[in-house]
Measured scan of single mutants.
Amino acid sequence: KVLVLALYDYQEKSPREVTMKKGDILTLLNSTNKDWWKVEVNGRQGFVPAAYVKVL
């Protein structure tokens, strides 16, 4: 399983997205889209901007 680090806070803007806080460790589920990556955080799955996270 691939983990990513949240570099910035992100507030979800649609039901398909998830909120994350800077420093959160998320599970990367899909990174085929260069702009939006699907992650799991706190038991929820959704998209975050790829530029806001870094693969650990």
Rank of each mutant, 00 (worst) to 15 (best):
W36Q: 03
V2M: 08
E17R: 05
A51F: 07
Y52N: 07
V55H: 06
K1A: 15
Y10L: 01
V48I: 13
S14R: 09
S31I: 06
D9I: 02
L28T: 01
V55Q: 11
N33D: 14
K13L: 14
T27Q: 15
L26D: 00
N33H: 13
N30D: 15
W36D: 02
V18M: 13
Y52A: 14
L56N: 04
L5D: 01
I25T: 08
T32I: 11
D35M: 10
L56H: 08
K54T: 15
K38R: 14
N33G: 09
K13V: 09
S14G: 13
K1S: 12
E17N: 07
G43A: 09
L28W: 02
N33P: 06
N42S: 10
V41C: 04
L29D: 02
V39S: 00
K34F: 07
K21A: 11
V41R: 12
K22I: 11
I25W: 05
D24L: 06
V39C: 05
D9T: 09
Q45P: 07
V53W: 00
N42D: 15
N33T: 06
I25D: 01
L3S: 10
V55F: 10
G46M: 04
V18L: 15
W36Y: 11
K21E: 06
N33V: 07
K34S: 11
Q11P: 08
K13M: 14
E12L: 13
V2G: 14
W37F: 11
Y10M: 01
I25A: 04
G43V: 05
M20I: 14
S14H: 08
E40M: 08
N30K: 09
R44K: 14
K34N: 13
L28R: 02
W37T: 04
R16S: 15
E17M: 05
Y10S: 01
K22H: 09
G23I: 01
R16P: 07
R16L: 13
W36H: 03
R16W: 15
L5M: 08
K38N: 08
A51C: 06
S31N: 15
K34M: 11
V2D: 14
L5I: 10
V2H: 15
W37S: 03
E40W: 05
V18A: 07
E17T: 08
L3G: 03
P49Q: 02
N33S: 11
P15G: 13
L3W: 11
L5Y: 08
Q11K: 12
N42A: 13
T19K: 05
L26T: 01
W36M: 08
N42R: 12
T19H: 06
V4T: 03
A50C: 05
L26I: 07
Y8F: 13
P15I: 08
G23P: 00
E40K: 08
G43S: 07
V4D: 00
V48R: 00
L29H: 07
L3H: 10
V55C: 05
S31Q: 12
L3P: 03
A50F: 02
Y8S: 12
T27R: 10
E12Q: 10
P15E: 12
G46Y: 03
G43R: 06
K22G: 07
A6N: 01
K34P: 14
L26Y: 12
K13Y: 04
E12M: 10
K38E: 09
K34G: 09
Y10P: 00
D35L: 08
F47G: 01
P49Y: 02
K1T: 08
V48Y: 00
D24G: 04
Q45M: 13
A50S: 13
V2F: 09
Y10H: 05
L56Q: 10
Y8H: 11
L29F: 05
R44M: 11
P15H: 13
K13T: 14
Q11F: 11
N30E: 14
L29K: 06
A50L: 02
E12F: 06
L3V: 10
T19V: 03
L7N: 03
E17V: 04
S31W: 09
S31K: 15
V41T: 13
K38A: 14
R44Y: 11
L56F: 12
A50M: 07
L7I: 14
T19G: 11
T32H: 14
V41E: 04
G23T: 02
V53N: 01
K13R: 10
S14Y: 09
Y52K: 08
A51R: 14
Q45C: 07
V55N: 07
S31V: 08
L28M: 06
D9Q: 03
P49F: 03
K34L: 11
Y8P: 00
V48W: 00
K21G: 06
G23D: 12
D9V: 02
A51V: 09
A51K: 09
V41G: 10
L3Q: 15
V53F: 08
L26R: 01
V2C: 06
T27G: 07
N42V: 07
Q11G: 11
G43H: 08
K34I: 11
E12H: 10
E40R: 07
K54W: 05
L5H: 07
L7P: 00
P15D: 10
L28C: 04
Q45H: 08
A50I: 04
K54N: 08
V18I: 15
A6D: 00
V53T: 04
V4G: 13
K21D: 05
L3E: 12
R16N: 14
V53M: 07
Q11M: 14
E17Y: 09
S31T: 09
D24Q: 11
V55T: 07
I25Q: 11
Y10R: 04
W36E: 05
P15L: 10
S14F: 15
N30C: 05
A6R: 00
L26G: 13
E12C: 04
M20W: 01
A51P: 11
L56W: 07
Q45I: 13
T27A: 09
Q11T: 15
K1I: 13
V18K: 02
K22P: 04
N33R: 09
E17W: 03
A50T: 06
D24C: 04
G46A: 03
N42M: 11
V2Y: 11
N30L: 12
L7H: 03
K22Q: 15
N33I: 08
V55I: 15
